[in-house]
């Protein structure tokens, strides 16, 4: 009896310890997010508050300006927002269909041996550091675009779109594939049992049933594309002013603006870079809210 009780108490203690250990670990993540958000917003919102020590700047001019000339005190980022959104949209429009079709191929159609080749390739693609993507873009894509375009340089919106398209593929493929795998076989059997072909089954039953999972993949791809920095910086051209007028125009996405100048910026200039970070952060938060809605929607079903 006494021994049993001792054991019980020991187990209880273990349970409690484990509980706190988990709680502590979870807290690390939450605190990190909160700290980053606070820090970025705190520093980035300073210039818009009257009486700021480093000088102030109009929020409207910041969000609608088409020039970024720190030397002349011009900090407009509208053309960067447009650049980021165009690049992301382009990458999604090109990358999502390729990603979905690849996932369908892997999950439903490919013979086993092809699957054993493609899957590790996709996983490897996900693991390649982004600077390597940048080098690839600079060495292959940019020169190729230079041949096509009338502009003197190949670094352009198109180059960014192509690099980002490749970079979002692993996200879209992996998540779509697991969404497809989660579709119950009973749906496939129901469709095939009616004499529908395999392709008809995939497009009319399997993909619609996997819809919310696929959307989640797309949203994560958007997040990846809009936040990508290193690879984009190498192929974008990064002009100091002007909306892009064609896919061959150089662009300056929000991320690269921060990464290129932060190392030497100070005073108001530095704070305006933080403000750029606030805009980027806001986009990411919106994307995550959308993602939450989508995944919650599918859980309820």
């Amino acid at each position: 009896m006494g021994k049993d009780m001792k054991l019980d108490r020991k187990n209880e203690l273990k349970e409690k310890l484990a509980h706190y250990l988990f709680l502590f670990n979870a807290t690390v993540a939450i605190i990190s997010v909160a700290a980053i958000a606070f820090f970025v917003f705190y520093r980035g919102l300073q210039p818009f508050i009257p009486g700021n020590a480093e000088g102030t700047y109009s929020l409207i001019d910041f969000l609608t300006g088409l020039e970024w000339r720190p030397g002349e005190g011009k900090f407009g980022i509208l053309y960067m927002i447009v650049g980021s959104l165009l690049a992301t949209t382009g990458a999604i429009v090109l990358g999502v269909p390729i990603g979905i079709l690849t996932a369908v191929f892997i999950a439903e159609l490919a013979p086993k041996w092809i699957r054993t080749v493609i899957k590790p390739a996709v996983e490897l693609l996900a693991g390649i550091p982004s600077v390597i993507y940048g080098l690839f873009g600079l060495g292959i894509i940019v020169p190729a675009i230079m041949q096509l375009s009338s502009q003197p340089q190949g670094q352009s919106l198109l180059a960014v779109i192509l690099v980002l398209m490749i970079m979002i593929l692993p996200t879209v493929i992996t998540i779509t594939e697991s969404a497809i795998k989660a579709v119950p076989d009973s749906y496939r059997e129901g469709s095939l049992g009616l004499g529908a072909t395999k392709l008809y089954t995939v497009f009319r039953v399997v993909l619609p049933a996997a819809k919310s999972g696929i959307l989640a993949g797309v949203v994560l791809g958007i997040g990846r594309a809009i936040g990508e920095t290193m690879a984009v910086m190498l192929v974008a051209g990064n002009p100091i002013a002007g909306l892009p007028t064609s896919i061959f125009s150089p662009v300056r996405p929000l991320t690269t603006n921060i990464a290129m100048e932060m190392s030497y910026a100070f005073g108001l200039h530095q704070e305006m870079l933080f403000a750029t970070g606030v805009v980027l952060f806001t986009f990411i938060i919106i994307i995550n809210l959308i993602l939450n809605r989508i995944t919650r929607g599918s859980e309820l079903k």
Binding site: E189, G190, L194, G195, A209
Partner: peptide, 18 residues
């Protein structure tokens, strides 16, 4: 596919499409 059109199937667990 022709065969499965001529021979319908009803499964143990109802499996209507969503």
């Amino acid at each position: 596919t022709k065969l499965r059109t001529r021979i319908g199937m009803v499964f143990q667990k109802p499996n209507p499409f969503p």
